[in-house]
């Protein structure tokens, strides 16, 4: 059974001054299985936040359904197993970190005898134990984000939903957030998060779903979406005269004493190796350049994938293609 199952949800909002409606979600289908990290990607306005808000019950879908652990989202037993951190969260700033987490622990029905220990444990986990008694209004944005993560995890949920969790964090904070998410996955928890930051998604996700125009444009395992799509191969050779190299290639240029060849097809690699051997040269390196998440993302959004490796300006201009 899926931990979270979103089927065909639609949602529209009344536009400014009640003039017509804006359709934000146009039938989103999404499934999160136990123990997986699913990244929800999309451009601004693609419907990421609306999808997540509908998933946690802040918005009611017009059509379609949301099932959390097989139950409707209105069921408090389902919500007892979920944790949620909204985008740019704001909390009761008159409370100290400890009071804040104690309040949330109480809302989750954690017994009074276990509450203090649980709060202390969460404060330590997000690295706020020495600032626990300061009011939240004196917290930096990164600290608010951490205490927000602590409230999402306080009930030891099986599914954690995070809306843009990395925004506003410094590199150390992002690293710590990543580590916590990976630790959750190791403990068999499911995580659904939205992000603009593709590097985070690539580092964390088992699967990604790309939203476009209120629909899931692509969804699948990250390894299968990326691995079998090598964009090109780049070989670095030495002691080879580029003019005498008889291999069909996309590009060839000189980098100092070495020659760099870019190949499009895997079969060309074998030909290249034979040619280098024949000419008495050395193959220094051979690197497959795979399709990155950014290429995939931009491709789904209708942009052309960017050039990944460019010949630096200091290098000699590409040698005209030789056809073999």
């Amino acid at each position: 059974m899926a931990v979270l199952e979103i089927s065909g949800i639609t949602k529209s909002f009344t536009s400014h001054l009640s003039m017509g409606r804006t359709q934000v979600l146009r039938g989103v289908d999404l499934k999160v299985e136990a123990g997986e990290v699913l990244g929800l990607l999309g451009a601004n306005g693609a419907g990421k936040t609306t999808t997540l808000k509908t998933a946690v019950g802040l918005l009611r879908p017009e059509q379609g359904s949301v099932r959390l652990f097989g139950m409707p989202i209105t069921d408090v037993r389902a919500r007892a197993r979920m944790g949620f951190l909204p985008e740019n969260p704001y909390f009761y700033d008159y409370l100290s970190g400890r009071e804040f987490l104690d309040f949330y622990a109480r809302l989750c029905g954690i017994a009074p005898s276990r509450r203090a220990a649980r709060v202390a444990e969460m404060l330590a986990r997000v690295g706020l134990e020495d600032r626990a008694d300061r009011p939240l209004r004196k917290f930096s944005k990164g600290m608010v984000q951490r205490v927000g993560l602590a409230q999402a995890l306080i009930n030891e949920p099986d599914l954690i939903i995070l809306d843009e969790p990395m925004s506003g964090l410094d590199p150390i904070g992002r690293r710590e957030f990543r580590d916590i998410i990976l630790e959750l996955r190791r403990n068999g928890k499911a995580v659904l998060f939205s992000s603009h930051i593709l590097a985070d998604a690539e580092a964390l996700c088992d699967r990604v779903a790309i939203l476009r125009g209120g629909k899931v444009a692509a969804c699948g395992r990250l390894d299968s979406m990326l691995s079998d799509r090598v964009r090109f191969w780049e070989a670095t050779l030495s002691r080879v005269d580029p003019a005498s190299l008889n291999v069909p290639h996309e590009k060839i240029w000189q980098r100092g004493e070495q020659v760099v060849v870019r190949l499009q097809e895997a079969e060309q690699v074998d030909t290249l190796i034979e040619e280098v051997r024949r000419l008495g040269g050395t193959l220094r390196s051979l690197v497959p350049h795979r399709r990155t998440l950014e290429d995939l993302f931009l491709g789904e959004l209708g942009y052309e994938a960017p050039e990944e490796t460019k010949a630096p300006a200091a290098e000699k201009p590409p040698i005209p293609k030789s056809r073999g």
């Binding site: 951190l85 969260p89 989750c108 009930n155």
Partner: peptide, 14 residues
């Protein structure tokens, strides 16, 4: 308005 409600009504609270 301050969006504090987001994390309250998503807890197991009616």
């Amino acid at each position: 308005d301050k969006r504090t409600i987001y994390t309250i009504v998503t807890k197991p609270v009616g």
